[in-house]
Amino acid sequence: MNNFSSITSHLFHPSYSQHHTPIVLCDFDGTISVKDVTDTLLNHFGKDGCDELEELWVNGKIGSQECMSKQIALMDASLAELNEVLSQIEIDPTFKAFIDYTDQNNIPVHVVSDGLDYAIEFVLKRHGIENLPIFANRLLHDNERSWRLEFPYANKDCIKQSGNCKCNHVKKQQYFPQILYVGDGTSDYCVSHNVDFVFAKDKLIHYCQKNNIEHSAIKYFSDVTQALKQSQQALIPTVMVK
């Protein structure tokens, strides 16, 4: 029987008391990263059956937790091969400047993803970003060619049956006067109803428009930085519109 273990460093998860700035929660795949990392890995290393699982998820027959768990178990790759592919993943070119600004202004930023903790940590570190709190599914390796997932942030009551219940993470941010969210796609739909304001990319723009969710359409994280700069004297940036 294979012995699987985490290959992720000990992730930094801060605790808070009363805070006077907003907190920014960010999706990773397609939001911070240019491409979906999990899809990229599955395209390179996934064995037969991954596409069928994806179809079941798209059609609502299984949740993302079940889909990803079974897909990751179908990956065949060494750690070196995985890292080689991860080394090719690019991120939003303005994300580092966004992190520098939030650090300077004491605005916490958390990565809240239904993706893979190790992949997120690896990609961010490669781009010079470390010690950013990451809440994601835990990638396990057997030190050979097999992979598994654990779900430390799953919630049995999650409407979307996600591996990482983003709405549950939002509920834990009671120390902040405002919760801002940055996302791009399907895994961000549910949580967008439960935050104070959404910065939306791609499919999430249309979802927010359709559901009358207060949001701002963005292309880069520089748009979020600019909004935060304009909001120094108010909790909600004045540039935000429905």
Rank of each mutant, 00 (worst) to 15 (best):
L140D: 07
I89P: 07
G49K: 10
Q230I: 09
S6R: 04
D223T: 14
I129H: 08
C50I: 09
R126L: 10
Q174D: 07
G49F: 09
I72A: 00
G49E: 14
D39M: 08
K35S: 14
P93D: 02
K242T: 15
T238W: 06
V37E: 06
L180W: 15
S78C: 07
I218S: 06
L25M: 09
S222N: 14
L116N: 05
I205M: 13
I72C: 01
K210E: 15
L116W: 08
D114F: 00
S6K: 11
A77E: 06
N168V: 12
M1I: 04
N105F: 13
D76E: 08
G46A: 04
F12N: 09
V195D: 04
H110M: 09
A200W: 12
S64W: 01
F45E: 02
K171Y: 14
R126K: 05
L139F: 01
T21D: 10
N43S: 07
K166H: 13
L56E: 10
K210S: 15
V191A: 02
H13A: 06
I159F: 12
S6A: 03
H215K: 04
E121L: 06
K125Q: 05
I213P: 13
H206Q: 15
G63M: 08
Y181F: 04
H141M: 06
D39T: 03
I99A: 15
K210P: 14
Q104S: 13
I91N: 02
M1K: 07
I89L: 01
T186I: 14
V85L: 03
A80C: 08
Y101R: 03
H127T: 04
N212V: 15
L180D: 12
P177F: 10
S162V: 05
I120D: 00
Q71S: 01
M1F: 08
D76L: 05
V24R: 12
S231Q: 09
Y16M: 14
N131M: 09
M75V: 07
D39S: 10
H215N: 00
Q88P: 15
N212F: 10
F221M: 12
D76P: 07
C67K: 06
H169R: 12
L204I: 01
P93H: 02
H127I: 11
A97E: 10
K156R: 08
I120K: 04
S9E: 08
S162G: 11
S87D: 09
